[in-house]
Computed example of a mutant assay.
Amino acid sequence: MSDQSPWMTTTEARLYARCGRRQLLAALHTGELAGTQRTAPRGTWRIHRDDVDAWLRGLRPESVDRKPLRRVVPKRRAS
């Protein structure tokens, strides 16, 4: 697994955590599990493997020692 990216989609994260889709999405929406959503509210989620491990251990996202990602919003093109 060392050659793979530590960032996972929701499908990869739920298979890794062995939990259901609704449970994972609920944890993301409530902030119980840290993740980054691209183009909210319907964008794809990216979850770091360390955050999934911390969530499985019952740790809150604030207690994980890692800098949060900065959201990048694409600029609209002038017509």
Rank of each mutant, 00 (worst) to 15 (best):
D3W: 01
W7A: 15
W7E: 14
W7Y: 12
M8G: 12
T10F: 03
E12V: 06
E12H: 05
A13W: 01
A13Q: 04
R14Y: 02
L15W: 00
L15V: 07
Y16L: 01
Y16C: 08
A17W: 01
R18N: 14
R18E: 06
C19V: 13
R21C: 14
R21L: 10
Q23G: 11
Q23C: 12
L24Y: 01
L25N: 09
A27K: 00
A27G: 11
H29I: 08
H29C: 13
T30Y: 00
E32Y: 00
L33V: 05
L33D: 05
L33I: 03
A34K: 03
G35F: 00
Q37W: 00
R38G: 12
T39N: 14
R42W: 03
G43V: 07
W45P: 15
W45V: 05
I47H: 01
H48L: 11
R49E: 07
D50A: 15
V52Y: 00
D53Y: 00
A54C: 08
W55H: 05
W55Q: 02
R57C: 11
R57N: 13
R57Q: 12
L59R: 04
P61A: 02
E62R: 06
S63I: 04
S63P: 12
R66Q: 09
K67F: 04
K67R: 09
K67T: 09
P68Y: 00
P68A: 04
P68I: 01
L69C: 09
R71V: 07
P74N: 05
R77M: 09
R77C: 13
A78R: 04
S79R: 09
S79A: 13
